[in-house]
Each structure stands twice: as C-alpha cells, then as structure tokens.
Lab assay of single mutants.
Amino acid sequence: MSIQHFRVALIPFFAAFCLPVFAHPETLVKVKDAEDQLGARVGYIELDLNSGKILESFRPEERFPMMSTFKVLLCGAVLSRVDAGQEQLGRRIHYSQNDLVEYSPVTEKHLTDGMTVRELCSAAITMSDNTAANLLLTTIGGPKELTAFLHNMGDHVTRLDRWEPELNEAIPNDERDTTMPAAMATTLRKLLTGELLTLASRQQLIDWMEADKVAGPLLRSALPAGWFIADKSGAGERGSRGIIAALGPDGKPSRIVVIYTTGSQATMDERNRQIAEIGASLIKHW
C-alpha cells in the first residue's frame, strides 16, 4: 500500500482519535458579512469528516447552483462504474471539434489522439474542462443518470439537468442544476469515506481534487503551510461562485467545507476574496 493510499485508508482512524471539535460562531459572522459585502445569498456548511456531524452552517438547506462543483460527483459516478466493471479508466475516447464547448483548455489539445477516461476526469476536476465533463456525462448516460446515481446514494436534493455550459445559467428560483450545502457536503463525505467506492477509487477521487489547479484564489489562499486540501470550485452566471473541499491540518483532511453564493453584482475577484476570507476565519478558529 502506498503512503497516499495509507493516508486515505486511515482518515477515519486518525479522526477518531482527534480531540473533540467545537464550532466557532466567528466564522458564521464572516459568512454573514460576506453576504453584506456581496449583496447576495451565501450558503455555508462545515462537517466533521469522521462523524458527519454538522459543526457550523448557514442557509444549509437553500438551493444554490452547483456550477462546476458537480464534476466531482460526476467522476465519482464514473469511478463507481469502474468498480462495477462497467468502465475502464484506460479506455480512450475520441471526439471532434464539434464536441468542444466553451472553456476546454485540455480537451482542445487532444482532438487528434483523444483522451482516456482517467485523463478526462483529471481534466474535468483539476482544470474544470467543460468538454471533458460533457464527454464523461455521455459515458454514464447524461445528466439524468448522474441525478439517479445521487438518488441511489441517498441524495434526493442534488440534481443535474443540463450539460456544460448551460448548467451554469443560475436563474433565480430555478431548481435545475442545483444542490443544497448540506446535501453536497453529505454526498461528498460519502464519496470520500464511505463504502460506495473502493479504496482505490476513493484515493483516485481525492487525488484529482488535491491536484486542483484553478481554485488557488479561494480556500487555498488562506491555508497555512502543512495543511491538506482537496477541492473543486465552480463559477456561473449572475454572480455565482462555489467551492467544495476536504481539508485539515497535519497533512490530512478532517472536515468537509461547502460554500456557495449566487445573485451578486460583485466582480469575480471580490467573490473570490470573500470566500478566501471565510476560509481564513475557519482556519483561525479551527
């Protein structure tokens, strides 16, 4: 067993022997301040990774656009098919120029040779490549099948209805392509620590998230040296922004954090800054 596999296998073990965790309302004060600064709703939840206990939450059962955070769930569904012998990570998928959609920095470079399922998941999570996500959605049967996968996990809230990039439209009061912070946090925890996926697939999923290259201005910008984070960000229309993450000190994750916002007129930089400040408060009061 590799060191990384050992780390993920012992996530519940280490967490069980940690000192009790206590909620700190100071972080919620910052979440509410972010709402004021952005002029928009902000949803927040913080779960203990081992027990699933909610440590703090704000608007945990209000719907927010998922945006690209759905790509972690998508690759979880792909990995479940791999575990069941219905898919192979090494299978190569070929596609054409007509398949390319807006923001496809990886797939646009491989029109000639195609990409493997493993490479597509890596591109979808680490670079948020939209064509990679659409190609992977095709392998599982489309958005409705991802929703069905989530329902089978016990998540009857999260739903995907459309493809990239239309799913980022974020129309107010439109339930399409949305989740709730509580539902997303619980589902992410199941994917990373539950028995739904094999140990190898859980490790692969967290490795992809740990290698995320496009979430630097968010929670990662607030992390002290030595902290662990595996995350996936999302951005959408109407001032929408979000991030889902597993993080913790001492090089291992111990909490799940989900943050979503929508309806702001603020710039992307300002949305990023507010999420980073929430992260800084979380870490300060850990």
Rank of each mutant, 00 (worst) to 15 (best):
E26V: 09
E26Q: 09
T27W: 01
T27I: 09
L28F: 05
V29P: 09
V31H: 00
D33E: 04
Q37H: 07
Q37F: 06
L38R: 10
G39E: 08
R41P: 08
G43M: 13
L47W: 06
D48L: 02
G52I: 01
K53T: 02
K53N: 12
F58L: 13
R59I: 10
R59A: 07
E61P: 10
M67Q: 08
T69I: 03
F70W: 08
F70H: 09
D83T: 05
D83S: 02
D83K: 02
A84P: 08
E87K: 13
H94C: 12
Y95R: 07
Q97F: 03
Q97L: 09
N98Q: 07
N98E: 00
D99K: 08
D99Y: 13
L100D: 13
V101D: 00
E102Q: 07
Y103I: 00
S104G: 07
K109H: 01
H110K: 15
L111H: 01
T112I: 14
E119L: 08
L120R: 07
L120Q: 00
S122M: 00
A123G: 00
T126V: 04
T126P: 04
A132H: 15
N134C: 04
L136I: 13
T138F: 00
L146Q: 06
F149V: 10
H151N: 14
N152Q: 03
D155R: 13
T158W: 09
D161W: 12
W163H: 14
W163R: 08
W163P: 09
E164N: 15
P165A: 10
I171C: 00
N173H: 04
D174R: 10
E175L: 01
R176G: 01
T178P: 09
T179E: 13
M180Y: 00
P181V: 12
A182G: 11
A182R: 12
A185R: 03
T187C: 01
T187L: 03
L188I: 11
L191R: 07
L192E: 06
G194I: 10
G194P: 06
A200D: 00
R202I: 09
E210L: 07
A215E: 04
L219P: 13
L219G: 09
R220K: 07
A222Q: 02
P224H: 00
P224D: 04
W227V: 00
F228N: 00
I229A: 02
A235N: 10
R238V: 07
R241E: 11
I243V: 09
I243K: 03
L247Q: 01
P249Q: 04
I256D: 15
V258N: 14
T262M: 09
G263L: 03
M268R: 12
E270F: 11
R271E: 02
R271H: 03
N272I: 04
R273D: 15
R273E: 14
A276Y: 06
S281E: 06
I283A: 13
I283N: 10
K284F: 01
K284W: 02
W286H: 00
